[in-house]
Design a protein around this nucleic acid. Sequence first.
DNA 1: TCTCTGCAGAGAGGA
Length: 869
Amino acid sequence: MYLLVVAASVNEHDMLKTLVEAIPKILNWIIAFKGSQDSKVPVVDFGSDYGLRNLKISEVIDIEEMAWAPKYGLKGIIDASIRVKVESSGNEANEKILPLEFKTGKVPNGQSSLEHCAQVILYTLLMSERYLRHIDSGILHYLYSDQTQGIMVRRSDVVGLIMRRNELASDILKASKMQQLPPMLRSPSMCRNCHHLAVCTIYHKVHGGSTESSGLGDVFDSHVYHLTAAHCAFLQQWDRLIDLEAKETQLVRSEIWHSNAMKSDRSTNCLSSIVLDASNGFSQQKSLKDNRFIYRFVPRILLPHNVYASKGDSLDAPSPPVNDLDCTLKIGDYVILSTESGHQTVASGVIADIGQFHVSVSLSKRLRLPSSNSLPEANDLLQEVWRIDKDETMTSFSVMRSNLVQLFLQNAQSSHLRNIIVDLEPPRFDSGCVFSQDPAISYIWSVKSLNGDQRRAILKILTAKDYALILGMPGTGKTSTMVYAVKALLMRCASILLTSYTNSAVDNLLIKLKAQGIDFLRIGRHEAVHEEVRANCFSAMDVQSVEEIRLRFNQVKVVAVTCLGITSPLLANKKFDVCIMDEAGQITLPISLGPLMFASKFVLVGDHYQLPPLVQSTEARENGMGISLFCRLSEAHPQAISALQSQYRMCQGIMELSNALIYGDRLRCGSPEIANRKLKFSRLKSCSSWLNEVLNPHKPIVFINTDMLPAHESKDSKTVNNPVEAYIIAEVAKELIKCGIESEDIGIITPYNSQANLIRTAVCIISVEINTIDKYQGRDKDCILVSFVRSSENPRNYSSSLLGDWHRINVALTRAKKKLILVGSCKTLSNVPLLKLLIDKVNEQSGILNVSHEDIKLEEHNVEQVGCC
DNA sequence: TCTCTGCAGAGAGGA
């Protein structure tokens, strides 16, 4: 509630007054309709065809009930679902379930409006689906005038609505496929006060519309006169890219909207065959703080006996674990709960906790099956077999579209950003008077721990009038540079919006800021925020009023939020002096626009030599969707870039490799100590000579060539892996640990998920971090092992595979501090030009290590073991 | 060719 008040910036007291006035009205209505044995049964008018009916509520089944109907492609939230007894004069009363909709606004002409009736009729459709029974009527109640209207669903009304729905769906399809919008309504009276007028007219103009075709005359002109042909082309181009990407994503996303979804269990974004865990009471705890209900589920196979035998996750793994909850769901993900007996989308919630043998889901209300009554101790829940699907409602696309169109609105902020981003006007900088009185600048000169690059980067930020770009090559201390930039900006009393795409990137930065004693506000969902910064969320602050929220905003200069989190009502109407965006090279342009709208200037921090934004659709990628704003501006105005080139991560040898392949000798070691880093073994003894060679501390880079082995990739439907490589990686990892390297100093990376899983089973006894290259961006370890996977008898062109992307190769090569061990087939990999260069370079530096059959004593069963796990 | 993070919601006016 506080959030809405903040967003609408209405007076808190006024709002409370409205609310307090409405409560007794609702209450009176309920009392009147619930009635008692002897009280008079109220009469409701169901329109001319059906007349007056006596109506008595026997139960309020649910409020704010979620109702999704895949069959109709509709979803909604029903104000109240009620069970009633209806009787028309003389006839026997029959019991019904129906939707009740409250309206607060004015009553249109004393008659309920067509729109409101249509809404209720749609609700009856949704409820029919949910309750698996025919629901033929609904109730509309106007609080302002205390009028109750009954709605009896006529078949012709439903047909009309469904036809209208189909028209709309077809228009949307046409717009996204052929970039063709339906014609304007051409009705100034209707359009003048429409909330979508600005966006609507902009789109009309962009798609070739004119003042005449809009039918709106001057109103049209006043909304679009500022748009040039270049602006229109830009909006049209990006709108199309978003369409392409949205289409692609819809194809792969979980098929919860399809009726056969229940049968396909192949998606890893779902958990099936789980049941409620009743071992600790009903496993339903109400967390006191935020009124949420937590339900704990366990695999069905674990019940009933195992769960009672031991507690929590410490139980012996059942063999085989039919479902060890091996899926990609993680804490904070939005999910949908369904039953396998046919109730789809019973409830939606958030993963509160997930382990190998349990998953807890947090719901905003009590879990209830539509068919059952609302008693809290409903045992029918325990009888059900459940499934959890990730809620993949693609809100990111709507954020993209709304960000994009905002850029073309007729206002000062949009106009400024448009000049910079669309027209690519050169950024302006203060002619840097170094000896100025600016305390921020003197502070930066006084900080001893900054190197020359970092200081120049911060000065760039401080002198920027529009924007600054910070190119942070691997290991160059991007984060600490940002921390000092924030400190310097705070000396100028600037307000700062910190952002990045992922929660983890935002929180990483915040943890460093916190260590420096800088106060900040973190906007975001409690579950998704790192625990070290959760105390800075409003959800942890126990705010009692809007005033307290305002107060807190006034105290704090730094606010942090993810790029998609900007839609939070807490940020409505907020303005900042500077927006700093981390990992900007990985964020698509339309997404990055959002946070920039809040600030008068911005700083993008990134490295466009590392992975670009993830784009699913090849067509969208080929047409420029993978070009981040960071990349666009870097290419247009190199003078806006300040590069961090002194790196503190890699030793000389590893850095040289990256310099030779990607950075053109621009990377430097921060100090001689960094340059000469070596792995320290507490003991070096190995029985096999090839492992001795791999561990040789004088070789920072080792390439293990598998060409002499039968080490071919194996393909399983869509994924690729390589069991022999997995085996070699595991052997090396075990040897490293045997020789005294701590397991937390070792990281294993590979392009493919399937290979990561294979390696995980191969090294099962030791706990080493294993991940895809993509997920490892931004991280580092003393020793990194890379499995390239690709290897075949007749190598083909791999330029369109994951290995063909040089950004990914760059990320893989720049994660290791002291030792980089690469495993792959020289013959196959040499087909990728960059990898050919890599192999040549390593050969020059330390030679390629060819392993033979005898070397690794490749017993058939070893590999088979890995292969079958 | 197979890499993957984010994100509520409903509400309303007027010749």
